[in-house]
């Protein structure tokens, strides 16, 4: 293959076939080298690769939290790129320098890849700001009705990451967004061990978040958080 081959466009179906085999790691070394070169010359393919890489990063991040049933066969970690790695030695990117972990981008990219584009807040699909949305934290230390802590993110991000506190150990049965121009209903939401529910909302969302949750003993309760008008 000559170097200029990378610039010759393939038909869409053939391009997708190569991409699929690349993401499934089904290419041999020479094919991989060629396709990665092709990828650099055809940036519209990059998004799918970013989403897949985000999925890998998410598993590493989750593995570092010990939640993937990580067994003793976690790979040899011989140091070669592409070889098995030991998640215990990888360090999540320091959020202070890099923004929020990239799996946020993965989540949406994954959904888009599944054809669930309607879940996107905009019809345009993922943008470069996806991995760094504005973050709003309703902190129990600030009291239930004090203004939330807002960490500005990429102003072009279509997403808004909202963290709502619930008592540790409780289960969030449902979350509703009401009182604003948009309404939304979520099902049950996993709470972190520290007692936060993480919600990824349309960046334009305003109104009240109504959280129905249950204590470990089954007693139910409800709490509300008002999203700031401007974030």
């Amino acid at each position: 293959m000559s170097r200029s081959d990378a610039f010759l466009p393939m038909t869409a179906w053939l391009e997708q076939a190569w991409l699929q085999r690349y993401l499934d790691r089904a290419l041999d070394a020479e094919e991989q080298a060629w396709f990665e070169t092709y990828l650099l010359a055809h940036p519209h393919l990059v998004e799918a690769v970013e989403a897949d890489t985000g999925l890998r990063d998410a598993f590493a991040l989750a593995g570092s939290a010990g939640g993937t049933g990580e067994g003793g066969d976690a790979g040899g970690g011989d140091g070669r790129p592409g070889s098995p790695t030991r998640p215990s030695v990888v360090r999540p990117r320091p959020p202070s320098r890099r923004g929020l972990p990239p799996w946020l981008g993965l989540a949406a990219g994954l959904l888009l890849g599944l054809g669930l584009a309607a879940l996107w807040p905009t019809a345009s699909g993922p943008g470069p700001g996806l991995a760094n949305p504005t973050r709003i934290v309703f902190d129990t230390l600030r009291g239930g009705h004090s203004p939330p802590h807002i960490e500005p993110g990429d102003p072009d991000s279509p997403w808004l990451l909202v963290e709502v506190p619930v008592p540790p150990g409780s289960r969030i049965d449902s979350v509703r967004l009401e009182g604003g121009p948009q309404s939304a209903v979520f099902g049950s939401v996993a709470a972190t061990p520290d007692g936060f529910g993480l919600l990824l909302l349309d960046a334009r969302a305003t109104g009240n978040l109504v959280i129905d949750y249950a204590y470990p003993d089954g007693v139910r309760n409800q709490t509300r958080f008002q999203l700031p008008m401007r974030h």
């Binding site: 998410a58 996993a190 993480l198």
Partner: peptide, 9 residues
């Protein structure tokens, strides 16, 4: 980051 890791786990 730790919370997010726990959530996805």
């Amino acid at each position: 980051a730790r919370q997010l890791a726990a959530a996805i786990a």
